[in-house]
């Protein structure tokens, strides 16, 4: 979470464009914009939040990052490797771990440790080392005690943490969470976010794709997407205070920020655009006592 400018770029998108082929009602092929002309770079150690409402191209962008989709135009570079280069594809997927929305649909085995082992097994890692990696990954997401459980009996947040462990066992440099919190209850969301932040502190680059603005608060960079284009980039504060932009793309600042802003405008002595809801509460109490 450092603010230093001297950082290594790990993922670079140069004018990346992806069109989906769909068919109109009369049967003619049409191109649907997935993402168009996206140029951005993600640095090592960043915690990047990618936001936008449904269908804005967030997930398409995510799939471009590890070569699940190859850009129609432009380039996607991961540690200098082009995702369009078939020879590099496994090295790219090794460095970009990905976790998807529905934990039930990304599970390959019916026992937790076997599921986590799937990645390193694919990479041809020796058996003893696989076990080491699996338990290290489970430790990182605090799920060691469930190593022998059946995932179907776990809660959503736990399942998703297992999915994260599955990605971590490949030992990636970047972790992409593609709407991984969207299907979870508030507690599960909290668990997954806590794990993501903890990993980031240990040096993992995290890309969090979400439409919950509350989850964006602690990111050190926010990318806003709309209709397949990146419309803005900045710190969470820069984005939250840009009400015009948020309105245009159909998003809202977190409640605490909205409330503190309105109270501040109404003349109360509270900090403007406060992200900390507890601090805001304290300030409001102070005001009321006065």
């Amino acid at each position: 979470m450092s603010e230093t400018t001297q950082q290594n770029v790990i993922i670079e998108l140069q004018n990346a464009t992806y069109y989906y082929k769909t068919f109109a009602e009369d049967g003619t092929a049409v191109q649907d914009i997935g993402v168009e002309g996206v140029t951005l770079s993600i640095c090592e150690g960043d915690f990047v939040a990618l936001v936008g409402h449904n269908g804005c191209g967030k997930s398409t962008l995510a799939k471009l990052l590890n070569g699940l989709l190859r850009p129609t135009n432009g380039k996607v570079l991961v540690s200098g490797m082009d995702t369009a280069d078939k020879k590099c594809i496994f090295d790219i997927r090794k460095s970009v771990g990905m976790v998807f929305q529905n934990p039930d649909n990304q599970r390959v085995a019916s026992i937790v440790e076997e599921d986590v082992a799937f990645g390193p097994e694919n990479l041809g890692v020796p058996s003893a080392e696989i076990r080491e990696r699996v338990y290290k990954a489970l430790e990182q997401v605090n799920m060691v005690e469930f190593a022998h459980s059946a995932p179907s009996r776990l809660s959503g947040g736990q399942k998703q943490r297992i999915a994260i462990a599955g990605a971590l066992a490949i030992q990636p440099k970047v972790l992409v969470l593609d709407e991984s919190t969207a299907m979870l209850d508030p507690l599960g969301r909290k668990e997954v976010l806590a794990v993501a932040h903890q990993l980031n502190k240990q040096g993992m680059t995290v890309i969090l794709i979400t439409h919950f603005m509350e989850e964006v608060l602690d990111a050190n960079k926010v990318i806003v997407m709309n209709n397949g284009h990146v419309v803005s980039q900045g710190t969470p504060m820069e984005i939250f205070t840009n009400t015009k932009l948020l309105e245009e793309v159909g998003l809202r600042a977190p409640r605490a920020v909205q409330l503190s802003h309105l109270l501040h405008q109404a003349g109360f002595a509270v900090t403007d655009n406060n992200t900390d809801i507890k601090m805001l509460g304290g300030e409001v109490c102070q005001e009321l006592k006065r």
Binding site: N66, F90, R93, G97, V108, N122
Partner: peptide, 10 residues
């Protein structure tokens, strides 16, 4: 989705 997840895990 499963195919994507499996591909992502090499």
């Amino acid at each position: 989705e499963l195919a994507n997840a499996m591909n992502s895990r090499c």
